[in-house]
Amino acid sequence: MTVVIGFEGSANKIGIGIIRDGEVLSNPRRTYITPPGQGFLPRETAKHHRAVILTVLREALDEAGLKPADIDCVAYTKGPGMGAPLLTVALVARTVAQLWGKPLVGVNHCIGHIEMGRLITGANNPTVLYVSGGNTQVIAYSERRYRIFGETIDIAVGNCLDRFARVIKISNDPSPGYNIEQLAKKGKQYIELPYTVKGMDVSFSGILSYIEEMANKMLSSGQCTAEDLCFSLQETLFSMLVEITERAMAHCGSQEVLIVGGVGCNLRLQEMMGIMCEERGAHLFATDERFCIDNGAMIAQAGWEMFRMGQVTELSDSWITQRYRTDEVEVTWRD
């Protein structure tokens, strides 16, 4: 049996999870929540992670009922993400790896999402839609790489949603995306927004500028409600995502879709993707907020795969990196 502990903290979530051969033994997490109208900044986010990380680590061990000696490998997020939070988490991972005499494995955050999604859903070789606050990519596996078929050319879809939430002062608790999703259910009117698919890629910054410009005017004049705006924004953004995912599936001849990343727990996105899959006779795989949203177990799972293939990261090579593309990683654990 191989037991891996995973440390994640590339954005505003800090999570530590323990995996034993595909079984999640523990996966505690904390989220840094900012007041309405405010985003999270690197310094403050790192301070948050710093304040709770040792408590979360204690919880992860206690919930799993394990002692450090039971762990075989320490995995941590090498990147991509915000520098200061990544470093805070990496420091603790490096230190415990040495204290406990365990090997260290640096994990690509995106690969963590994909491997966790595959583990939880049992999807074999899916076309992956990875959607979060920092990333938007359509990915398919080929020849030892997770290849990016389409991606955002500017901001991530979750960033577009988060920043829209700030404009109309939607709460960030538990997350802006969740609150937009709830409001959208009560939307009655579709407001037309720019639709910007460019080949296999998507663009969200123009849509955000457009809605930022018109939102408060339309709300104050009573032309539409906040619920209508949430509904219209979701429908537009998610249609674009479904379109590029479908095109990637057609290209690869794939009959499976896996949605991962924080935006992936949005049920309306899952529903729209499900309709497309049904029309194509394909199968949709998605997970809930425990595993979609950043967590420690996903880093442990990708670390588990890497460690089993004999990959370890020397301490001197364990630097963190804000930029780290999904297709930079050689996937040694798949055929």
Binding site: R50, I53, L54, L57, R58, K67, P68, A69, L87, T88, L91, V92, T95, V96, L99, W100
Partner: peptide, 20 residues
Amino acid sequence: LDHLALVMETMDTFGQPDLQ
């Protein structure tokens, strides 16, 4: 100094022999 303090606190909390 912030990083150093975090490393030292981690050692204090998780480096005790009774945890092994």
